[in-house]
Write a protein that binds this DNA or RNA. Structure first.
Length: 489
RNA sequence: GCCGCCCUAGCUCAGUUGGUUAGAGCGCCAGAUUGUGGCUCUGGAGGUCUCCCGUUCGAUCCGGGAGGGCGGUACCA
C-alpha cells in the first residue's frame, strides 16, 4: 500500500502550442520575407519587451484595481501591475509617447514577436501567438495609409500568397460616422453596436445584420444578442451603405452619393480618393486593393481608414472539407492612441497580421513554407573504438556547410537507418569496418530509397538492392553528400 | 460569459443490459534479416475506462459535481 508519488502531468498549458521544425521553418520564412519587404518600404526594425505596465496597455476594469481579464498580469516588487503585451500597437504608442521628441518624424517601424491574450482558446486560436506589424506614427496623410496597404500586399506576396489569392479591402470609419450623424445617431454605444453588427455581414447576411441593427437577434443556440436599437429608416440607410459595390475610383462615386451629404462622409470619401490615387501610383490596382464599405473591423480605436486582408483561395482541411479562412490580417488609422499618454494627438496608421495564422493559410492553400524542412546527414555509429572517425566525417560535412550528426543513441544499425529516415535525412554515411580498412566511405541516398520503396515488395530484394548506395574513396565524402543534398533542394 | 454535445491505450474508436482476465486498427519496441529505412509475418510494451462524491455486495457503465475537449453564440485591444 505505498502511495505513488504525485507526478506532474506532462502537458502544455491550455492555449499554448509547441512548434517543431516544420512550423518554425514556415514562420521564419514568412518573417524574413516580410521583413525584407517592410525594410524596403522604409520601416525600421523595432522591438519592445514582453511586459508593459498595465496602465500603459490601457486595460483596467472601470471600477477595479486589477487589470482586466484578457491580459496576463502580475505585480512587480513595487506593487505596480505589469502585463504581457496583447498586441504590438500599444507598446508602440507607449514608446512613441515616451521618446517622441527624439524621434525622426514620422516614425516608421515594423515589429514582430509573441503577444499574449488570456481568453478562451480554440482551433487556430492561441493564448500566445506571433504578430507582425508595420506602422507609421506622426503622419495624417492618407498616403501613409496607402503605403501601409501597399507594403502589406507586397509582404503577403513575398510570404508566398500568389497575386489573386488575397485582396485588401479598404473602408473609412468616417463614412459610417457621417451616415449615422445624418440619421441622427450620436450615442457612442449605439455606434459601436452598429459596427459589430456590420462586422457579421459575411456570416449572418443582410437580414441577420438588420436584426442586430434593430431590436436584436436570437441565434441557433438560443442566445439572444441585443441589437443597436436603430430606427427603421436608419437601418435601411446602413444596409444600403454596406451594399454599395466594392471597387476603386468607381466605388468612390457610388459612396459619395450615399454619404457625401455629411461633413464626415465627404471627408472620408476624400481620404479614400487620395489613398486610391497613391495606390495607383504604386502600381496597386483593384485586383490587390479595393474600397469596400462592408469592412469595419471590430476595434473601437480606429478613427479613419480601416483595412483588412482577405484570403480568396478556396482551401480545404485534412478531411478535404472547404475552409474559409477569411481575414488574415488588418489594420487602420488610430489617431488617439499616443494622446492617451501625452495629451497631444498624434496620427498613426498600421497593418498587422498573425504569423502562424498566415502560415496555416499558406499550408491550407498548398503552399507550405515549412515543407522543405530536412534533417541532418546521419553518420552511422558502429564501434565504440571508432567514434573519432565518425566525428571526423561529421566535422568535414559541417565545415562544408552541410548539416550532419553522428548517431548518439545506443541502438543497432537498423534502428539507426530508421532514425535517419524519420529525421528526413537526405543521406546516411556508413563507415563500418570494411570501409575504414579500405580507406573508403559508403553513402546511402535516403531520398532515392524513399522514392523506390513503393516499387519493391520483397524485403530481401529491397535490402540487397541497396538503393542509392555507393562506396567511394574516403576523400570524396563531402562532394558526394553535397550532390545528394543539392539534388533534394 | 451563455447554450448544446462529448471524454475508454500515444492516436482513431469498439465494448460491458452494473460482475472478477477491457478490445481492435494505426503508431511504438523487438525478432524473422551477424552491417541497411519501406512491405510482410511473429512477439512485446502500453490503460487509476478524465477526476471526485454518491447509490450498490460490487461502478468504466447509474446519479450528482468538477475538469478537459468539440460545436454554436457573445467578446476580441
Amino acid at each position: 500500500m505505498t502511495d505513488t508519488p504525485a507526478r506532474p502531468i506532462a502537458r502544455a498549458p491550455r492555449g499554448f502550442a509547441d512548434k517543431r521544425a516544420r512550423d518554425l521553418a514556415a514562420e521564419r520564412r514568412i518573417l524574413s520575407a516580410v521583413s525584407e519587404v517592410y525594410e524596403r518600404y522604409g520601416f525600421e526594425p523595432f522591438d519592445t519587451s514582453a511586459f508593459e505596465y498595465a496602465d500603459a496597455l490601457g486595460k483596467f476594469l472601470p471600477d477595479a484595481d486589477r487589470p482586466n481579464e484578457g491580459v496576463f498580469a502580475l505585480t512587480d516588487d513595487d506593487d505596480q501591475w505589469m502585463a504581457l503585451r496583447y498586441d504590438l500597437t500599444a507598446p508602440l504608442a507607449r514608446f512613441a509617447a515616451q521618446t517622441w521628441d527624439t524621434l525622426p518624424k514620422p516614425f516608421r517601424r515594423y515589429a514582430y514577436g509573441p503577444v499574449w491574450r488570456d481568453e478562451k482558446p480554440g482551433p487556430g486560436r492561441y493564448r500566445e501567438f506571433v504578430q507582425c506589424d508595420a506602422d507609421t506614427v506622426g503622419s495624417a496623410r492618407p498616403e501613409a495609409d496607402a503605403e501601409v496597404i501597399a507594403a502589406a500586399a507586397e509582404g503577403l506576396e513575398a510570404a508566398g500568397l500568389p497575386r489573386g489569392a488575397y485582396v485588401l479591402r479598404i473602408n473609412n470609419r468616417k463614412l459610417l460616422n457621417g451616415l449615422l450623424a445624418t440619421a441622427g445617431v450620436a450615442d457612442d454605444r449605439q455606434k459601436l453596436a452598429v459596427l459589430r453588427a456590420i462586422d457579421k455581414l459575411d456570416r449572418l447576411g443582410p437580414e441577420g445584420v438588420r436584426l442586430l441593427l434593430g431590436e436584436g437577434r436570437l441565434d441557433e443556440s438560443g442566445d439572444f444578442t441585443k441589437g443597436a436599437g436603430l430606427a427603421p429608416a436608419a437601418i435601411d440607410s446602413v444596409i444600403a451603405f454596406t451594399a454599395v459595390e466594392a471597387g476603386r475610383g468607381d466605388a468612390l462615386d457610388r459612396l459619395s452619393n450615399v454619404v457625401g451629404g455629411s461633413e464626415d462622409g465627404a471627408a472620408g470619401v476624400e481620404e479614400l480618393a487620395r489613398i486610391h490615387q497613391a495606390l495607383t501610383g504604386m502600381g496597386l490596382e483593384a485586383d490587390r486593393a479595393l474600397v469596400d464599405p462592408s469592412v469595419v473591423r471590430g476595434l473601437e480605436y480606429y478613427t479613419g481608414p480601416v483595412f483588412e486582408a482577405e484570403l480568396l483561395l478556396q482551401t480545404t482541411d485534412e478531411r478535404g472539407e472547404a475552409v474559409r479562412f477569411g481575414s488574415v490580417g488588418g489594420g487602420g488609422r488610430y489617431d488617439d492612441l499616443v494622446a492617451r499618454f501625452t495629451g497631444q494627438a498624434i496620427p498613426a496608421t498600421g497593418f498587422s497580421f498573425g504569423v502562424s495564422r498566415l502560415a496555416a493559410a499558406l499550408r491550407a492553400a498548398g503552399r507550405d513554407a515549412g515543407a522543405g524542412a530536412r534533417g541532418p546527414v546521419v553518420v552511422i555509429a558502429f564501434d565504440e573504438a571508432r567514434m573519432a572517425d565518425y566525428f571526423a566525417a561529421a566535422a568535414e560535412l559541417r565545415a562544408a556547410g552541410l548539416p550532419a550528426e553522428v548517431y548518439l543513441g545506443s541502438s543497432g544499425m537498423k534502428a539507426q537507418m530508421k532514425y535517419a529516415d524519420r529525421r528526413l535525412s537526405p543521406a546516411a554515411v556508413i563507415l563500418g569496418e570494411d570501409e575504414l580498412a579500405a580507406g573508403a566511405v559508403t553513402i546511402k541516398n535516403l531520398d532515392l530509397g524513399r522514392q523506390l520503396a513503393g516499387q519493391v515488395s520483397d524485403n530481401r530484394e529491397w535490402r540487397e538492392a541497396r538503393p542509392g548506395q555507393q562506396t567511394l574513396p574516403r576523400a570524396e565524402l563531402v562532394a558526394a553528400v553535397r550532390k545528394i543534398v543539392e539534388a533534394a533542394s
